[in-house]
Design a protein around this nucleic acid. Sequence first.
DNA 1: ATTCAAAATTTGTCTAGACGTCTATACCTA
DNA 2: TAGGTATAGACGTCTAGACAAATTTTGAAT
Lengths: 237, 237
Amino acid sequence: MDWEPGLSIWKQIEKQLLADISDGVFTPGEKMPTEMELVRRFGVNRHTVRRAMAALVDSNVVRVEQGRGAFVQEQILDYPLGSKTRFSQIVSGRHRLPDKRLISSEVLKANSTIAQFLDVKPGTRVIELFSVSEADGVPLAVATSYLPAARFDGIVEIFVETKSLTEAFKRFGIDDYTRKTTRISATLPSSRVANLLKQARNRPVISTESVDVDSAGAPIEYGVTAFSSDRVQLIVE
Amino acid sequence: MDWEPGLSIWKQIEKQLLADISDGVFTPGEKMPTEMELVRRFGVNRHTVRRAMAALVDSNVVRVEQGRGAFVQEQILDYPLGSKTRFSQIVSGRHRLPDKRLISSEVLKANSTIAQFLDVKPGTRVIELFSVSEADGVPLAVATSYLPAARFDGIVEIFVETKSLTEAFKRFGIDDYTRKTTRISATLPSSRVANLLKQARNRPVISTESVDVDSAGAPIEYGVTAFSSDRVQLIVE
DNA sequence: ATTCAAAATTTGTCTAGACGTCTATACCTA
DNA sequence: TAGGTATAGACGTCTAGACAAATTTTGAAT
């Protein structure tokens, strides 16, 4: 690499990296060479590379995680928290491909918390769904959902097939449902959640706890969702 | 200075400097020791001081000028450019003390530009007012105003007394007036203007050219104002 | 006194190296 | 197999020094 005079080298490196990102050489989410690789590529000192990266971090183009590396900052998805928000609609609306993969499911007896939210007696059989929501293959959230088993027997297969709870509910005659309550908090993810989100354990997640009710007001789902705070921004309206 | 463990030294320096600024050790506009002075004060390497200063610059607390030094960033005043904006109202609204000092005044014959804007014949006698507007003693702008002499005979004394054109106009029966046009540009100040603004000649000023009209639509003032771009930000609504 | 050029100041950039902290991975042990 | 440990990899901080660029000061010449 040869440097043009009049513009500091670190700015030229910043410019080049920015161009690479625009050109898709480095794709959002992962990639970006290590500092030492950039040192070799540009033939400058590590500090010079760091100066350029600092500028990119400052302008929110890349995100750096100590010990891991630098990552092209994904476009943060605005996720409106309305009473009728549907994951797939929101993602599709941003011209990104939504996907919701089921990780595991089982039937268990409701503890007092679950029973309370689903308005059933403790010990009632409920279906637990553990799933990952993705956009363009990038995980945005992991969700644990609880549904009353008696009402939704066989919903797991439908969910796996349609990859959408909204669709699955329709097969059970629920064409419309509403978010009743949402509680929001920020925590650090468990290693399992961090793994599924493909994010560092020291990056926080936004946790929401919500209950969906059918048009009659009966609870049909109680769920806890962990959003990657690097990729999703909740919008409360 | 002794460093507490767990927090990087540059962050502690940043914190200390921030505290100094809050405490008024370094006052807005001028001051701030040089890098080498800070090096001696904190007993660290120059780069460490620079890292701290960079953070302060980033958070807009300090402004650095190569070859000159670092300056505590004055609070930038948002100056809305509405048709009824009054300097003293804006400054008072920010809980700062407005002042408008007359530097010089004279009566001269209008050249074609002035005549055009004031809608009078070239050669008509006009009053020229040259004044400095300040907030809390800090100069924000210098203004050159032209008023038709025939209509506003004796306004200079009133202006000096009330330090406000708005007030002076009132004495002439003008309770309400409106900004008609405003043209905005950015230039480097003349040495005289830079001096009055107490700012460096290589720091730009925002220049506005405006015409005020009375409620009947007759021009009462044509003025050119140079705002210190470091201290004022024009807001167009 | 003014002007012009040189010198001194002050901040900006780049290089070099050392060590700390955090993360991921491989390996070893129970 | 599970869990802890050691190690390597990667970013974070700090020091040291040199030179460049911009500004201010100094001083000499006119």
